[in-house]
Simulated scan of single mutants.
Amino acid sequence: MTDATNVDALYQEIILDHYKRPHGAGLREPFEAEVHHVNPSCGDEITLRVHLDGETVADVSYDAQGCSISRASTSVLNDLIVGKSITEGMAVLDEFNTLMHGKGKIEPDEDILEDGIAFAGVAQFPGRIKCALLGWMAWKDAVSQALVTTSSTTTASTTGETP
């Protein structure tokens, strides 16, 4: 076996492990925003909730149906995002997005992406990129909604208005 074959096998094992034992799966409360995203090209679906504690991502919970890539990618997202600031989380999203659009030619930063590097091979298959990004785009959408919700609640509480 060549080194490249060994790496590919390891990456496949990481993806299968996250698929079989997903981290963060199951919808939980409390949450500031819930979104539902569908990948129309393959039918994968995700309902994702985000809970913020100030500027920190306190929890990401989800219910997903679909292929191993979309579900495993969301499990990795949970590992990489929970406990980080929103800004740090968005930087991780940018790094993962860059990897996915690199057509397999981008060397992933393991310090930032950790198990997310396993998706490097997915970037070579345009039809699978949306699968890998489904949970990430849902997370970005949920955070945007949560920030609007929390900022309008904060504004209302400082002005005495009802949100």
Rank of each mutant, 00 (worst) to 15 (best):
P126H: 08
T155K: 07
M1Q: 11
R21W: 00
M137K: 07
T153V: 14
H36N: 10
R128P: 09
Q65P: 00
T5D: 15
K130E: 13
N97Y: 13
E32Q: 15
A146F: 02
S152F: 02
G116Y: 05
S61Y: 05
C131K: 03
H18I: 09
S68G: 10
V7E: 02
V7I: 14
S41Y: 02
V92S: 07
N6L: 14
H37L: 09
D53L: 04
S157G: 01
R21V: 06
E45A: 01
L52D: 04
R128S: 10
L147N: 14
W139Q: 00
D17C: 08
V7D: 07
G89M: 12
A142K: 08
T153K: 14
L113P: 11
A146G: 04
A64E: 07
A4R: 02
L16C: 03
G89P: 11
E55N: 15
G43P: 00
M1L: 06
G66D: 01
E88L: 09
E110V: 13
A156T: 03
D141R: 12
K140A: 15
T158V: 14
E45G: 05
V60Y: 06
S73F: 10
G127P: 11
V92D: 03
A64Q: 05
T162K: 12
G116C: 04
P108H: 13
I69L: 02
E32N: 14
V35I: 07
L77P: 06
R128G: 06
L16Q: 14
T47A: 09
N97A: 13
S70Q: 00
R128Y: 08
S151F: 00
T74D: 02
S144P: 03
T5N: 13
S152V: 13
P163T: 13
V148A: 15
A123C: 09
Y19E: 06
G116D: 06
L99R: 01
V50Y: 10
T47Y: 02
P22M: 09
E34V: 03
L99P: 11
A91C: 10
T162I: 14
D59W: 10
E13D: 14
L113W: 12
F31R: 00
L48W: 01
K84Q: 15
H18A: 12
G160I: 02
G24S: 08
L27A: 03
S85I: 04
F119W: 08
E110K: 11
D109S: 09
G24H: 06
M90A: 15
C67W: 01
S70W: 00
A142N: 08
D79C: 12
H18L: 08
G26L: 04
E13Y: 08
H36P: 01
S73I: 06
P40Y: 01
P126R: 02
H23D: 07
P30M: 05
V7P: 01
S41R: 04
W139R: 00
